[in-house]
Simulated assay, not measured.
Amino acid sequence: MKSSKPPLKVGRPRTFDADEALDCAMKVFWEKGYEGSSLPELTKAMGMNRPSLYAVFGNKEALFHKALERYNDTRMQFFDAALALPTARAAVERLLSDYVDVQTEPDVPHGCLGVNAALACSDDALPIRDELAARRLRGEMKLRLRLERAQEEGDLPPEASPEKLARYVMTVSQGMAVQAAAGVPRTQLHEMATMLLRGWPY
């Protein structure tokens, strides 16, 4: 006699989400820096064992580079959007304002992943430090080119130095990232941005 019970259904295994795992790794690196993030902390946060992590993402350095790209894709989109604004002042104002907001969002580590990771890098992590420095310089160059265009359009006076202004803005933004990581409130960081803009050439 056949059983009247329906056959047991085997549940589908949970689909692995690489972006979700990468977001978890990103938050660990963001909070603890590159060298301060251990493999046990990363694997626990990502819900993976070490062999699986290596198979999907490579070693710790490769994982960090992927997390950094993920950070840029999901947290730094405002940079190019700010540079597309019609005036240099509006671009810098939006740039600094969005920097502050991203660096002080709730439920994520404060500060900037790139700045936090670069603050404590030994000689063993020199390639990481060099990569982070190169990224900062690329951002500074993009801002400099935008300011040079503003000067050509008469939006900045002839005596202004796009190179120095770009370096100044980026230095202030990195300083605000350090302050944000130390717990300085968002309102105070916005005040710092406002002070910079009071001395803007136009």
Rank of each mutant, 00 (worst) to 15 (best):
M1K: 15
M1T: 15
K5T: 15
G11R: 12
R12G: 07
P13E: 05
T15L: 14
F16K: 06
A18W: 01
A21Y: 02
A21C: 13
L22R: 01
E31R: 14
E31V: 12
G33H: 00
L39G: 04
E41W: 03
T43N: 14
T43W: 08
A45T: 12
N49W: 04
R50K: 10
Y54F: 10
K60Y: 04
A62C: 09
L63K: 04
D73G: 15
A81H: 04
A82P: 00
R89G: 06
A91P: 00
V92L: 08
L95F: 11
L96D: 01
L96P: 03
Y99P: 04
V100G: 01
E105Q: 10
V108Y: 04
C112P: 02
G114C: 10
L119G: 03
A120P: 01
D124P: 01
R129S: 09
L132V: 08
L132D: 02
R136S: 07
K142F: 08
L143N: 00
R144E: 08
L147K: 07
E153S: 15
G154K: 09
E159L: 14
S161K: 08
E163S: 10
R167P: 03
R167D: 05
V169W: 03
V169P: 00
M170C: 11
V178F: 05
Q179H: 09
G183P: 10
P185T: 14
R186C: 14
L189P: 02
H190S: 11
H190E: 09
G199T: 14
